[in-house]
Amino acid sequence: MTGTNWGLYITIAGVFFVALLMLLMEKRAGLGARQVALIAILAAFCAAGRTVTGVALLFLQPTMFLVGITGFVFGARAGFFVGAMTPLISNLFIGMGPWTPWQMICWGLVGMSGAAVRFLFPRAGYKTMIIICFGWGFLYGAVMDLWHWCVFTRPLTFNGYFLIWAAGVSFDSLRAAGNLLFCAALGRQSIKILNYFHKKMDVRYLENL
């Protein structure tokens, strides 16, 4: 018996981490009917995008950049929830697995990074998001490879990780390219559309006639 079973630990840690994040996020007030409905619909939208993107676009997915933009427009919490729920919902239909919690964390972080961009550079536009999303294409792959590495290779060596990463790098670059392409093509409109609804999210102060 090997003393350290990292595969088990990292999977369980993922579950706890994602559960904790979700709990913390929802305990903060301000999730009214509009917010709940909007987050759920965006998550369903992203999940559908992640699931059905067909052969026509070489499996490039028009999804991850939208999660980032959601965070950018609606803030860290909405970004996190939409991100975390995207793999959760789509995996219900395309295959749940022990990788789900880590995917949820990664996607959630994508959403939160959008909010961070907004916070750090208030005047950033979709062009900044293109860079962020491109970066996430690779980062996401790298983090998920970490999970694969922990679960499936032993002993854990850097070389092992490197090989797994190298095996996945073509997929990663495809993902990054997809993010780049879609964010460039759709980023501006998406921000516009989401901003349009963002305005509708908060009930304006009532005026009495």
Partner: peptide, 11 residues
């Protein structure tokens, strides 16, 4: 109206 929608109301 007006709780969910906001807006201006009289009466």
């Amino acid at each position: 109206i007006p709780d969910f929608y906001g807006g201006r109301i009289g009466g």
